[in-house]
Design a protein around this nucleic acid. Structure first.
Length: 583
RNA sequence: UCCCCAGUAGCUCAGUUGGCAGAGCAGAUGACUGUUAAUCAUCGGGUCCGUGGUUCAAGUCCACGCUGGGGAGCCA
């Protein structure tokens, strides 16, 4: 080992030892041997600041053992190596004998520095060499539990402001963002200067005291004692703090996810997905995963993604797991599937994706009325779960009017399709009456019974209610072949759609299935579907057929509604649309 | 597939009747002990989407194309 060139008994004031020009070994040792180390972290320990940089300069480090008081020549010096991960500024990490996990010491360190400009060690007065609890690695979300303690946070630099002798670093760790205050008097000039020049999205480990701060949005700040730069961005982060266009942000989706807004949306999505599973789990449903590859269209041949499938020709990506869930319901009673769904429709609207996630429950011995009760309880459960967990974030970050979600509780209003048509026609008449005749003539024709309820019509129906509205008994001709006809009125099918309020439109479609073999055979023929492909499905009616019902809910539309978003593309991590498949 | 709109600095945009290419933000340098999208000063930064045309002169007008956005239909 190189000779010791400097040795110092450190006073109360921090002292910096430069190492440049020649190879140095710097020894620092305790002022008062035998000083008791309090629980937690004593700020008066050797601080190895700027660990990311120090790492490059340190070749060796040694710690004086318990006999430190005897001096540097004491045989208690423990040779040790600096571990690769020096991320506990404030404590000296050592690997005994050059292998094994590092143990963290406070006490006297001997640092062997390489000859590099800027190399140096900054030390506060050390206390007794003694193994101590290392500064806890904590998350911003849990910061309140660590008030008054020294902690290490690891994350990314979100933003930075400066005011002379203070730098304000906004550090984001995935659970939240916290302001870290770097005061010139608390760190070395190098660290202070570095803190003022770190670009956005630098990954850092910040060590400091957790302090209560009324000016902070989260109530706490970090009073920085040490800052370890893990990695500087190699180039400027494309997404700044000002506004950006949608096209640009979608191209940068992999980076856009880091923004506070996208963080909240993805967390709400997570909560919604968890609530979906909790709801069905609590009610004794079994999760049955449907296939992604399907042999042919579930509901006709419209708009399916086609993939080559070995010698069997073509396969298609699923557009619904429903038919398979019907089979599963006959086996397990109450089932649901939850997975991705693919639609090759060239839909370019705020409500459409080519790949989206759908949950589809199916229940044996259930009729339309029971299905509608299940729908309203399910939607209410999911909305209330999201509200309970994210009320503050929804209101603050997404500026969502959460009072609009509070009213989402059962029962939901129910109207028939026929009644909905009347409501729409009255609205359309009112619109016409309010316009001069020549203007009114330019409007699209009035809705008549049998027309589909489009996006505008959905909004007309939904806006008179403060919660989702259930529209049931649609004309049979509009619905898929498997819907059961209403025995009271065969012109309509026992289907039901749930329309979300505030213009979010259809989030659920479902209903009671045709359980009679002959009627179903006729329906397949009437829709001109290939009978062979549905033989297995007809088997379900051949072997103990029972009334059954179910529905499908699109996760993205539900999340968009809960979050109050303009477009579903923000609700899925990586949206797939007709004109976009990257990143 | 149809209808509408947009494309100018890294980003968001302005650009007048067709007459020298602009601002804010971001970046760099400096000032400031409480900033919250900090502020202030200074500096650097351009294939005006592409091709062709009209014109003394095109970011601007015309044609075609490309890319993206919004909407319709269909759906969750």
């Amino acid at each position: 080992m190189a000779p010791v060139l400097e040795r110092g008994v450190l006073g109360r004031k921090p002292q910096r030892v430069e190492a440049h020009g020649v190879e140095h070994v710097v020894a620092l040792h305790a002022e008062q041997a035998g000083q008791r180390v309090a629980d937690g972290v004593d700020p008066r320990v050797p601080h190895v600041h700027g660990a990311g940089r120090i790492r490059e300069h340190l070749e060796d480090v040694a710690l004086l053992g318990p006999g430190a008081a005897a001096g540097l020549e004491d045989a208690g010096v423990v040779p040790a190596l600096l571990p690769a991960r020096l991320d506990r500024p404030g404590l000296v990490p050592l690997v005994h004998g050059g292998h094994g996990s590092p143990r963290y010491y406070r006490g006297t360190a001997i640092l062997h520095l390489r000859d590099r400009p800027g190399a140096g060690v900054y030390c506060a007065p050390p206390s007794t060499p003694e193994m101590v609890q290392m500064p806890e690695n904590v998350y911003v979300a849990d910061i309140a539990a660590h008030e008054g303690k020294e902690v290490t946070l690891r994350g990314w630099l979100h933003n930075r402001r400066s005011s002379g002798k203070l730098h304000f670093l906004q550090v984001r760790d995935g659970t939240g963002t916290i302001q870290c205050v770097v005061f010139k008097g608390n760190v070395t000039p190098e660290v202070f200067s570095e803190a003022d020049h770190l670009p956005q999205e630098t990954s850092v480990a910040v060590t400091g005291l957790v302090k209560k701060e009324p000016r902070s949005p989260i109530g706490f700040e970090i009073d920085v004692r040490a800052l370890a730069v893990h990695a500087r961005p190699t180039q400027e982060f494309p997404i700044g703090h000002k506004e950006h266009g949608v096209a640009f942000l979608m191209e940068q989706r992999h980076l856009w996810l880091r923004s506070p807004r996208q963080n909240v949306i993805l967390r709400v999505r997570h909560t919604v997905e968890k609530a979906i599973r909790d709801f069905f789990d609590q009610r004794g449903f079994t999760l049955v995963d449907g296939p992604i590859f399907t042999p042919s269209a579930c509901e006709g041949t419209s708009n399916l993604f086609e993939v080559p499938y070995f010698d069997l020709g073509k396969a298609y990506l699923t557009q619904s797991g429903q038919l398979y869930m019907e089979a599963a319901a006959m086996a397990l009673g109450k089932v649901y599937c939850f997975g991705p769904t693919f639609r090759a429709e060239k839909s370019k609207t705020r409500r459409h994706l080519t790949e989206f996630w759908m949950v589809e429950p199916e229940v044996a011995w259930l009729d339309l009325d029971g299905d509608m009760v299940l729908m309203e309880e399910f939607v209410s459960f999911v909305v209330q779960a999201a509200l309970a967990k994210h009320r503050d974030e929804l209101a603050r970050v997404l500026e969502r009017d959460v009072s609009k979600l509070e009213s989402v509780t059962p029962p939901f209003p129910r109207i028939t399709y026929t009644e909905a048509v009347e409501v729409i026609r009255k609205e359309q008449e009112a619109q016409r009456a309010a316009l001069p005749p020549e203007e009114a003539a330019k409007l699209p024709p009035m809705m008549v019974w049998g027309d589909d309820i489009g996006g505008d019509e959905e909004t007309l129906v939904a806006r008179s209610y403060d919660r989702p509205v259930m529209v049931h008994r649609y004309p049979t001709l509009m619905k898929a072949f498997y819907f059961k006809k209403d025995p009271q009125d065969p012109k309509v099918a026992l289907g039901c759609d749930v329309l979300a309020p505030e213009g979010y439109g259809e989030i659920i479609g479902g209903g009671q299935r045709e359980d009679d073999l002959e009627t179903l055979e006729k329906a397949i023929a009437h829709h001109e579907l290939p009978r062979e492909a549905f033989e297995w499905y007809l088997d379900l009616r051949r072997y103990g057929t029972v009334p059954h019902a179910g529905f499908g809910m699109g996760v993205e539309r539900c999340v968009a509604w809960i979050c109050g978003l303009h477009h579903v593309r923000e609700t899925i991590p990586f949206a797939r649309m007709t004109e976009r498949i990257t990143p």
